[in-house]
């Protein structure tokens, strides 16, 4: 790609606003994400800590008695903008922040599996392929042809369905444009209650700009995540403002 082409493409800062009041925690995004990105079905040994989850939904419990008891929090890579923790630590440039899309790109073919980026990520949004991915016999036929399955020993994470971005770029290129515009990641498409809004933070007229008051988790760390949240529930705002976990007394020994 030549320099002139680079400058002529509008830099975008793709991001999301997730409405926590709309999320019912059904998990459609989780499965759609796994299917889109060729994540293998969980082997017998896999649990919430050693499986590949590019997108997870956490169950949040309201610590105050008033109001709704539970909220569900979908979390993927937050695509941090500022001093992106994982980008700076990767010893071999396998993680990079794409200036044209604002997406933190993960290059599994260059990753040596040191997992430093995983310890650096405050959102635990990264997964490591602890073993070889495997599908039941014949199920390889259901693999998404646009996404290469990762091998064991490399780290992976959400990249806003980059294959879909590339498809959008290709489609735009057919029309003589360099601007892929807004495309739809798998989780956004799958959400039955449209809790996830995907857009471009650079676009003042876009859906994100109109999303009203939003907040992010761990804002105090100053990483400027591009995935932000919205909720009318106060306890969620309070929880998000509180950094680190102050355990309830009874849970400390868990």
């Amino acid at each position: 790609m030549s320099a002139t082409q680079k400058t002529s493409r509008t830099p975008r800062r793709y991001g999301m606003v997730i409405d926590l009041d709309r999320c019912t925690g059904c998990g459609a995004c989780v499965i759609a994400c796994a299917a889109e990105n060729n994540v293998a079905p969980g082997a017998a040994r896999e649990n919430d800590r050693n499986s590949i989850s590019l997108l997870r939904v956490f169950t949040l419990n309201n610590p105050t008695a008033a109001g709704r008891r539970t909220a569900f929090l979908p979390m993927m890579c937050m695509q941090c903008e500022h001093e992106t923790p994982c980008v700076t630590v990767c010893p071999q440039q396998a993680v990079e922040l794409d200036v044209l899309s604002g997406i933190v790109e993960q290059m599994p073919q260059r990753c040596l599996g040191c997992r430093y980026c995983m310890t650096a990520c405050p959102y635990h949004a990264r997964s490591f392929n602890w073993g070889d991915p495997s599908w039941p016999a014949g199920m390889e036929a259901t693999l998404n042809p646009a996404v290469a399955p990762r091998m064991r020993g490399v780290v992976e994470k959400c990249d806003f369905c980059q294959s879909r971005l590339h498809a959008a770029q290709d489609a735009a290129a057919v029309n003589g444009s360099l601007d892929p515009g807004i495309y739809t990641p798998a989780c956004v498409e799958a959400c039955p209650t449209q809790a996830i809004t995907f857009g471009d933070w650079n676009d003042p007229e876009g859906a994100l700009a109109k999303s009203g008051e939003t907040f992010a988790w761990l804002e105090g760390l100053g990483t400027q995540p591009k995935v932000r949240y919205r909720s009318g529930q106060n306890w969620l705002h309070e929880m998000a403002e509180r950094g680190g976990a102050a355990p309830a007394k009874e849970e400390r020994h868990g």
Binding site: G25, C26, G27, V30, I31, A34, A35, V39, P41, G42, E46, N47, D48, S51, S53, R56, V57, F58, T59, F72, P136, M139
Partner: peptide, 24 residues
């Protein structure tokens, strides 16, 4: 999860919902 309650075996990726995100 809705749709998984059946005499059929679970959809393979349903492990993402129960074992791997603990939604169910």
């Amino acid at each position: 999860p809705r749709g998984s309650l059946s005499v059929l075996p679970a959809v393979p990726l349903a492990s993402k919902l129960d074992r791997e995100t603990r939604l169910y």
